[in-house]
Design a protein around this nucleic acid. Structure first.
Lengths: 250, 250
DNA sequence: GAAAAATCAACCAAAATCATTTAAAAATAA
DNA sequence: TTATTTTTAAATGATTTTGGTTGATTTTTC
């Protein structure tokens, strides 16, 4: 049996039981005692487990790893606040469109228990929506590997057969002159179409997106309400002149 | 044996087992040790696998998916064999439809490195297809929580805009009188439509499905080739009278 | 607390695996 | 066809892995 394989088995067994005896591992892997000892020493050095007399236990710092993940996205706090506010705009009976993107993803936990129907083009969103038992329709189309978003002709066509009370769109750039923008033209098309099909459209963008612009235009400023978190009034002036701006305060 | 073919075999074996010993590969390809070594070195550089002492393993990402598969379901061995055979029917350049379902899911590792386009209605399938870098289109529509399959009007409509060289469908019942069946009428509709849109249609069903029938009819027997694993000739007689049956031997 | 049992780290030599070089065979190009 | 490149197989010695043994250390038992 290969070292790698053994290590996997050890860690799996460990995750399952919390503690393992050396002897168990010897049996489970058909290896000698000294081999297992060496494995344990190595895995301990890699911080995958902690050795104890007679075997090994899991580390207690699972939590830390999770919190590291939590922090992974930038401006997470701001995004969360924006998302929570946006979710509060959703009312029972609404049929909403959720655009793929990390900010809109954060909305989902706050949609729990609302009596709504959601349409989305984000596979990541879908998984979470199902977890929260929210009835969901997915657009069809080509799957963009990097973002797991549905784009292209198929997505547009699928979109045409719906109409929404509200839509919530993410944008990479918000500029008082160039409007809402995003890098991928195909995604921009989908976002734009969703906005057009909605009674009320919202773009979610934290302050780092303000005065930035990306390659493809999604829509003009006036076509959607901007939800952001910046507090400096002077920065917002040019936007307020052109559209409704909802500012989420801390 | 051509290099390319060897590489395909290596990656397939790897996708199936998660880890392979160098010696296994030597046997599987009838090549020398040094040849395999060179292959492994090259494939590692291409980030298709990771070398370890004594062989190679899949990359970390794919590992998780494999473990999901491991745990899934009864008759796994049979399903695997059926799936592997089905995958062998897929040729470069094909555009195929993969129905949601555990058996068709098993096909995916064997599709690795083939030059194909896949359309599916299974979210689980999608995730795995992306991992294996296979260009994928997803049907739209309502998401059935339990099976993570796309069904309903939206899915049917999305389906209409494609046509396939081959489709691979799962069925819960195969009966010489009632044909292919499945419990959910909405799913049955999708499956039936896919069959109609394909040049060549295959239904994948292990022997436990034979002579069973479920609520909703997918199609008549003659509309699709049956791929199964039962060996008892007398059981197969009535089916062979009505359609082509491909029996996967052990 | 002392003896017995279990577990440990450290070491060893055998076996397996490795990278590299060599030369033959096969595929490709001119 | 010949020349050139690619692919393969075998041989080399270096490196890694392995199972067993040692005596030291820890845990258990009385």
């Amino acid at each position: 049996m290969l070292t790698e394989e053994r290590h996997r088995i050890i860690l799996e067994l460990l995750a399952e039981k919390g503690v393992v005896k050396l002897q168990e591992l010897v049996e489970a892997t058909n290896s000698s005692e000294s081999t297992i000892r060496r494995d344990l020493t190595q895995l301990e050095k890699e911080k995958k487990l902690r050795r104890i007399h007679g075997g090994a236990t899991v580390l207690q710092k699972k939590r830390e790893e999770l919190s590291v993940l939590e922090k992974s996205t930038k401006h997470r706090q701001e995004k969360k606040q924006i998302a929570e506010y946006a979710a509060s705009l959703v009312q029972n009976g609404d049929c909403i469109y959720l655009d793929a993107g990390t900010t809109t993803l954060e909305m989902i936990p706050h949609l729990y228990d609302k009596d709504i129907v959601v349409v989305t083009n984000g596979i990541m969103h879908l998984d979470m929506l199902l977890e929260y038992d929210i009835p969901t329709y997915l657009l069809g189309g080509f799957v963009k590997k990097k973002t797991k978003a549905l784009i292209g002709r198929g997505a547009l066509q699928a979109l045409q057969s719906y109409s929404f009370d509200k839509c919530f769109i993410g944008a990479n750039g918000v500029h008082y002159e160039y409007g809402y923008t995003t890098p991928d033209p195909e995604e921009a098309m989908v976002k734009h179409t969703a906005i057009q099909l909605s009674q009320k459209a919202y773009v979610l963008a934290d302050h780092s997106k303000l005065n930035e612009s990306a390659f493809s235009k999604i829509a003009e400023l006036h076509e959607a309400v901007l939800i952001t978190d910046d507090l400096a009034e002077e920065w917002l002036e040019p936007y307020k002149a052109k559209t409704t701006v909802e500012v989420v305060t801390k």
